[in-house]
Simulated assay, not measured.
Amino acid sequence: MASEQKSPTPQSRRDVSCNLMNDCEKMDENIYHQIQYDRIDNLETRRENFSNYVLTICTGVLGITLANPNSLDSISIFFIFLFGFAINIISILFIKSTMPFIRMHQIRADEIRKQYDLKLSTINDLIIKPSPKITIRKKDYEFKRHNIYICLHWVIILFFAVVTIHSLLIPKDIN
């Protein structure tokens, strides 16, 4: 005897529909949560890539400048310093401009987690997050990745200034 298939009743359709909606809502929340971390990763990667490009350009310019210091006149040396100063300042400003957006995505992800996954939120709140700090003269300085990049750009600017001053003060060989 062939088995009869029952057609779904309106109530069973509604139950299936509700279960699918709950699953879809949960999936949407998870996707939205993941999108926030993807955006954070994208911003951090873009920021680090930009810094690395600037550092590579500065290293090349300094290498060329230091290889033939006597072949450059004072104006060229000054413009090389200005170039190095400008691109490092732009890089510092770019790093600082991404911070509010990263923080915004972190807050969004935290709110999503707190609202939709209480267990995960509780676990996350219990974990003590590392905070790399250096104390100098009773003042704490945070050395998170973005601060390290900013310090590195200031060091490069300082190095450009020292090389420029040194190059301008060295008497040129008139051969």
Rank of each mutant, 00 (worst) to 15 (best):
K133C: 15
Q5K: 04
I90D: 08
S121P: 06
S71P: 00
A67C: 12
H153N: 05
R14G: 06
E25T: 13
Y149D: 13
I64C: 09
S3C: 01
R14I: 11
M104Y: 14
R39W: 15
E44A: 14
F160G: 06
M21C: 04
L43Y: 13
F160D: 13
T45R: 12
K139C: 08
N68Y: 09
F143N: 15
S7P: 06
D28W: 10
L168M: 05
I102H: 05
V61F: 02
D28L: 05
F160I: 00
F85S: 13
R145F: 03
D173Q: 12
T45D: 15
K172P: 00
N19F: 09
I165G: 04
I136F: 07
M21K: 15
K129P: 01
M21P: 03
A67K: 08
N70I: 08
T164K: 02
I95D: 11
L72H: 06
Q36K: 01
Y141C: 12
F79G: 04
L82C: 03
Q115M: 09
Q115C: 03
L152M: 15
F143S: 10
M104S: 12
I95A: 14
T65Y: 04
D73V: 03
I170C: 07
L152S: 13
I92N: 09
G60K: 00
C24E: 12
D38S: 08
E48F: 14
F85N: 00
R39L: 10
L66N: 11
G63P: 00
N19Y: 10
I31V: 09
L120P: 05
I35D: 03
S91D: 10
T59N: 10
I31D: 02
F50L: 11
K114P: 04
M1E: 05
I174L: 07
S3R: 01
L158P: 11
P100S: 10
Q34A: 14
N124W: 09
S131K: 14
W154K: 07
F101G: 12
D110W: 07
I80M: 03
T56G: 02
H153M: 04
R39Q: 12
I134Q: 13
L168Q: 14
L93C: 02
S97P: 02
K129V: 05
R137S: 13
F143D: 12
K129W: 00
N70S: 15
E48P: 07
H33D: 13
I87P: 00
H146M: 11
I35H: 14
D41V: 00
V162D: 14
S17V: 06
R14K: 06
L168T: 06
R39H: 15
F143G: 07
I123G: 14
P69G: 05
L93R: 13
V61D: 10
D173A: 11
L118T: 07
T9E: 05
Y149W: 10
N124K: 01
Y37W: 08
M1N: 02
F85Y: 02
F101C: 00
N88T: 01
M1C: 04
D23Y: 09
P171C: 03
I102S: 07
V162F: 09
I136Q: 03
L20V: 04
F159D: 09
K26Q: 11
N22P: 04
P10R: 07
A67D: 07
C24K: 03
V54D: 05
W154V: 12
G63R: 00
L118N: 12
I102D: 08
